[in-house]
Amino acid sequence: MSVWKDFTDGLWKDIPPFRLVLGLCPTLAVTTAADNGLGMGLATTFVLVCSNALISILRKLIPKKVRIASYIVIIASFVVMVELFMQAYFYRLYIILGIFIPLIVVNCIILGRAEAFASKRPILNSIADGLGHGFGFTISLTIVGAFREILGAGTLFSKITLFGPHFMPFSFMVKPPGAFICLGLFLGIMNIISRGRV
């Protein structure tokens, strides 16, 4: 049961970046469209699950003093793998996400979960934790991306056109200031929801 709980924690109780306020840079930068958010989220999930698993396996071997260095080597290696795979099979997305793929390395969520969870818990729990937080992050990015895309361009997943020909896109939403304001409002709404539950 605890494995299941570790999984669901990331999906609601600690959903990044709303509850666990980490990883804001990619959230702001790539959520101009729903599919970009989805792609970024899945890439992050892959790195998070793999690094959580490996760090959990090695947790008793890695000496305390060099643990951060070891984590960075492990995380960076998985990020390079994602870079290579995306170039090979999802080139368009690779170009759109640009420098934010190498920057997964410094996404605080990944190092944060490694330090706070995977370095102390068995492998199954760590994988569940990685999957949960990864999917949570993916869902958040996709929702923010969809919201900004619908208002800013009038489409969803770049294909479905939602409004008639007279729709004037509110392009402010896909511009940088729109990213900050949109995410700020989302955080506020999440705060209201969680207060209502308490």
Partner: peptide, 16 residues
């Protein structure tokens, strides 16, 4: 407003 305190209002300010 209480629910906007902290990061939420920070992001709005950054937006402006």
């Amino acid at each position: 407003p209480d629910f906007m305190k902290g990061t939420a209002i920070g992001l709005l300010t950054a937006g402006l």
